[in-house]
Design a protein around this nucleic acid. Structure first.
Length: 109
DNA sequence: TTCCTGACTTTAC
DNA sequence: AGTAAAGCCAGGA
């Protein structure tokens, strides 16, 4: 079947739509690209690792960062988030309560 | 083309 | 509470 846009392209589009200083989870992104599997989101980003894709804004539902961030490691990812104003908890997890990008905001896409 | 892997999430013990 | 297994599908070899 013919796919006009690669799965990565869809994921990338959604990730780029995330406002600066906000974050979202793989599950939410998965829903935005009309899928049920969150693993593909991470897979897509990891396989493509496009520098234009702010994948550092995509985290686990738990708030933890990706274990295999391809841009310089998880610490680099955390640094980028902090730089954008995203707060972290003592557990090393991102503050989902104050920075989670709500799925409803995606209606603009 | 087929087969295997994977940056997840959820449910169950 | 933490640990284990299942399920889903697109890429890469």
């Amino acid at each position: 079947m013919k796919m006009r846009l690669s799965f990565f392209s869809q994921v990338c589009a959604v990730v780029k739509s995330i406002p600066k200083g906000k974050i979202t989870t793989y599950g939410i992104v998965a829903r935005l690209v009309d899928t049920k599997d969150s693993r593909r989101i991470g897979h897509a980003l990891h396989a493509n690792r496009d520098p234009n894709c702010p994948c550092h804004r995509v985290v686990f539902k738990d708030g933890s960062l990706a274990p295999g961030y391809a841009f310089g490691g998880p610490k680099e990812q955390r640094f980028r988030l902090e730089k954008e104003g995203v707060g972290f908890k003592a557990s090393g997890k991102v503050d989902l309560v104050n920075h989670l990008w709500n799925e409803s905001l995606s209606l603009a896409i």
